[in-house]
Design a protein around this nucleic acid. Structure first.
Length: 569
RNA sequence: CGGGACGUGGCGCAGUUUGGCAGCGCGCAGCGUUCGGGACGCUGAGGUCGCCGGUUCAAAUCCGGCCGUCCCGACCA
């Protein structure tokens, strides 16, 4: 490609909505442009990178036995109704009607449609299968952000596996785990594989692949000494036992005028330190009020409540709902004597005695509460958010909490989709069995952004050769006849050697060309100019560490082609 | 959905308080001088001031409504 002919609209200033580093660099470098909130156009450079990412994914999927499909983006609402997700996924699913009034939806994922195709299989002999495609997804996110990191429309590689039983699923799950590690490694990212919440996907087990970055939206708890790592939506830690002083008899009412917070109560009474209080939170789950109890100094991880309730229809109760249900305002709530609402308590409260909690009467609290004796706990449920420094649940060493970007997620689905859609096969005994499914996703654009997040410096992007828009840029400076001839020769030679090369033949000053090449992040730059050409040499610079090497003009093509080949993965 | 802010040439912004010629920087075009790390001079092109309505002799500016965007929170494979 000739730069003078290419559409590479670089910017000298940051876009107004610059947020994540990757967003800023991708916009400034002329890789992407925003169309509207959460929708981006890929410009030629962005397209080249995305294509390379897609091809790496294809190669690794094919390597583990995947077969590529392409399924539609517009789905009949009917199929989503069959699995129940028409109602359960909420507004994230964009719905509309066609001219006949038929309900349609834009694909936010493809479990339904792939499972529908799987209904054509009828024998265990057809299994196992691994199917995938790279296709547009649309999710009507309430708040897209971070440029490509969180968008509404994006291309995702999603694959689906079909097995007779859990053992088969385990094999396919493991293969995906391996393929995903290779994919991220080839793109130049270090990932952390973590246990995750399955969210609305359902299913038994899921693993997320995370890249550490401040631009991320998830947190991972990682052990400093063993290999424990989990999304904080699911992570646990050891809670040191609290020794309670005995309390003779029933709870006692304590006047606490004006006290509405755990901190204030702890301040006012030395018997009410936060770890000796019970935090009572009211949530509306599927329309009915439920109580979640935690130790006073512990914080609720809402996703754990969602997972425990098995529905996403959850919201904090509003003040008026709380008042009419419990007779007090938040700040004086408690679960002692409450029988009409279901109560979920965090295990850290187990066997605790002599606790302090609200009396469900403004300005009154109870002390001397024995959790097991005085509160009708319906279920014990891990609800607390893990904090950095707490002991690892496996080995007891302190946990780190790290901000991450989720770049891939693999799920064991089981029969959640195959059953309602009737995807069944006959087993060797002639018995009908629902196919056991798995689903696995990698967002292409998010991975492009994540790769930039982990590969950049102050001057721009530092692409690994594997996904760079071009492998080499030939930069001609002070173009006289000799320079032009030498530069063109190298450009031609590299092209013939199979190197992806762009020649910066623009009539620009050297500084502009250097700055653009670095912003765009091309791994190798060959500078051809009179200064070194006088010695019959050109300069080869590596973007990553900016090392410069002078090489004889006639050796440049071979040398650079070899260097590029060595870094292709 | 709750709170806050913003919308003015391709990009970044000023002008709005106090109504009166639509401006600045970058970028873009032409000419000239420059040219190994984002040059400089001169000339020039380019704007329904988000949209609709209202007030006024006069609206980017005041009022009402709507739309869009961003930030915090809520939500969220």
């Amino acid at each position: 490609m000739r730069w003078s002919q290419a559409h590479i609209p670089t910017l000298r200033e940051d876009p107004a909505d610059a947020e994540a580093v990757s967003h800023r660099l991708l916009v400034r470098g002329g890789f992407i442009r925003r169309l509207m909130a959460g929708s981006y156009s890929l410009l030629p450079l962005g397209m080249r990178v995305a294509t390379k990412v897609s091809n790496i994914i294809r190669e690794e999927m094919d390597r583990i036995g995947g077969q590529e499909f392409l399924l539609p983006v517009v789905h009949p609402g009917e199929v989503w109704k069959q699995t129940g997700r028409w109602d359960s996924v909420g507004e994230e699913l964009l719905r509309f009607k066609d001219r006949r009034g038929t309900d349609l939806a834009l694909a936010m994922t493809h479990e339904e449609i792939f499972a529908l195709l799987a209904t054509e299989m009828s024998s265990y002999r057809d299994l196992p299968q691994m199917w995938y495609h790279l296709q547009t997804k649309f999710r009507d996110e309430p708040r897209p952000k971070g440029g490509l990191l969180r968008v509404r429309e994006f291309i995702m590689k999603d694959s689906y596996t079909f097995d007779l039983d859990e053992e088969g699923l385990d094999v396919q799950f493991r293969r995906h785990d391996e393929a995903y590690r290779r994919i991220f490694e080839r793109m130049g990212m270090e990932t952390i594989a973590v246990e995750a919440s399955s969210g609305v996907m359902g299913g038994s087990e899921s693993v997320e692949f995370m890249v550490a970055s401040d631009a991320g939206e998830d947190d991972v708890a990682m052990c400093s000494s063993c290999d424990y790592a989990a999304n904080t939506e699911k992570a646990t830690s050891q809670v040191p036992e609290v020794l309670d002083d005995p309390w003779p008899g029933d709870p006692e009412r304590v006047p606490t005028p004006g006290i509405r917070t755990i901190a204030a109560l702890a301040e006012a009474h030395d018997f009410a330190s936060p770890e000796r209080q019970i935090k009572t939170l009211a949530y509306i789950v599927g329309g009915e009020l439920r109580l979640a109890l935690l130790r006073g100094d512990h914080e609720l991880m809402e996703q754990k409540l969602v997972d425990g309730m098995g529905t996403t229809d959850i919201r904090p109760a509003e003040a008026h709902e709380i008042r009419s249900a419990l007779g007090a305002d938040p700040g004086s709530l408690g679960a002692v004597g409450v029988t009409e609402f279901r109560i979920f308590a965090d295990p850290a409260l187990r066997n605790r005695t002599n606790m302090v909690t609200g009396a469900n009467e403004d300005d009154w609290h109870l002390r001397g509460v024995d959790v097991e004796r005085d509160i009708g706990v319906d279920a014990w449920l891990d609800l607390r958010r893990v904090l950095a420094g707490e002991p690892c649940p496996r080995c007891g060493e302190p946990l780190d909490v790290v901000r991450v970007i989720e770049v891939g997620h693999i799920f064991k689905l089981g029969t959640t989709y195959s059953e309602p859609l009737g995807a069944v096969v006959l087993d060797p005994e002639g018995k009908e069995r629902p196919i056991v499914m798995g689903s696995y996703g990698i967002g292409v654009g998010r991975n492009v952004a994540a790769a930039v997040e982990s590969n950049h410096d102050d001057d721009g992007i530092v692409w690994p050769v594997s996904i760079a828009p071009y492998e080499v840029v030939v930069t001609a400076v002070q173009q006289d006849d000799a320079v032009t001839e030498a530069a063109e020769g190298i450009y031609r030679g590299l092209g013939e050697a199979g190197v992806e090369v762009i020649i910066d033949d623009r009539d620009e000053r050297p500084g502009v060309k250097f700055a653009d090449a670095e912003l765009i992040g091309i791994p190798f730059r060959i500078t051809v100019g009179p200064r070194s050409l006088a010695d019959g040499e050109v300069e080869v610079m590596r973007r990553r560490d900016r090392t410069v090497e002078r090489v004889p003009l006639d050796a440049a093509v071979d040398m650079v082609a070899a260097a590029v080949a060595a870094e292709r993965r």
